[in-house]
Write a protein that binds this DNA or RNA. Sequence first.
DNA 1: GGTAACATGTAAGCGGTTACATGATTAG
DNA 2: CTAATCATGTAACCGCTTACATGTTACC
Lengths: 194, 194
Amino acid sequence: MAQSTGDEGPDLTLGLTAAMYVVLGMIHLGARSGYEIKRTVDQSIRFFWTISPVQVYPSLRQLEQAGYITGRAEPQGRRPRRVYEITTAGVTALRRWLLQAQPMPFELRDIGMVKLFFADALQPSQAHELLDAVRERSAQLLVTLEAIRQQAEATKAQGNLFPLLTLEMGLAFHQAIMAACDNFETQLPKRAHV
Amino acid sequence: MAQSTGDEGPDLTLGLTAAMYVVLGMIHLGARSGYEIKRTVDQSIRFFWTISPVQVYPSLRQLEQAGYITGRAEPQGRRPRRVYEITTAGVTALRRWLLQAQPMPFELRDIGMVKLFFADALQPSQAHELLDAVRERSAQLLVTLEAIRQQAEATKAQGNLFPLLTLEMGLAFHQAIMAACDNFETQLPKRAHV
DNA sequence: GGTAACATGTAAGCGGTTACATGATTAG
DNA sequence: CTAATCATGTAACCGCTTACATGTTACC
């Protein structure tokens, strides 16, 4: 489809999903196999993006088909494995996407926040519990993020500064949530002892 | 599909999606029509949840079928309109959902952050632009949120304290983002004049 | 008289999750 | 020897978005 009319290419360009650009970006940062991409995503952008293996491998094929990456088999022993490198066309496509002044709508989707929003439907003691749950969740995430920090700083040492920035935004976010929880708790009617 | 094998049970109870609970919760807070629910969502939880009319109306039917809300026609003039009220069963279901110690996984999905994460692929001046775009986005949202604040405080006066809390979390979040952007900008190599 | 807001839908498609499936290698 | 990790998939489903469709009332 989208036959090359002469001057250019299969307009996969338009059809690339955000997930594919994530894959492309991770390869650009040095991830080699699909497995490594998935792992890297989990260990870096995990709080504002996720990806599943089921998305990764088809994305790799499409990116290769588009000429943005090149893959070659590199099995380890008898275990099959395919590693990829980004092409100059791929780098161009990545940069174009990054610069694209698309709406970038801010869309979070967090059930925890939704529940908190409706917490007035609960009895005070139960609302407290919910508040604690949300607070605890952020506390947990802070621990996880701190663990990632080591890696982000190593990345920085290699010349990539922005991963550390986004990590720090994540940290700041959850610290803000916890602070808001703490502050709010003082305003709530005292919890009847359960 | 899913033919009734005799004992009844369109076990909608189990199948309720988060979106349906959002609709239920909004009715509990006083929203009456589908249209009003959609509008209320946009004006309250809009930064951590969205909903479209296409979801609202089917949700209302399913909630009514489940006995969680009751609806009646209340046209305004010749314009059709259906208004709903939550039932005691509905309140129970809402509370049960709020208390459900489900994983509450924290899942954001923000392309802006992703782009920022990959910004090292750009030239410094372009990375600056992206940083500014993300910063500006949060600045805009802060304005929107401040506008909502009036309403959240009115809601608080009516006895619902939590909407203001979640609003303040949104504010704190975007303030944190902006602060991180500002802080980071000082660490970046000076932008070559474009 | 026209635009914005009110009010409710249908149809199609797709991105993404869940569940399932397979096998090799390494570490304890 | 067993479990964890590495490594890559298929099939089915579904919630949600997008695009489209329709008509009314209120406001300037």
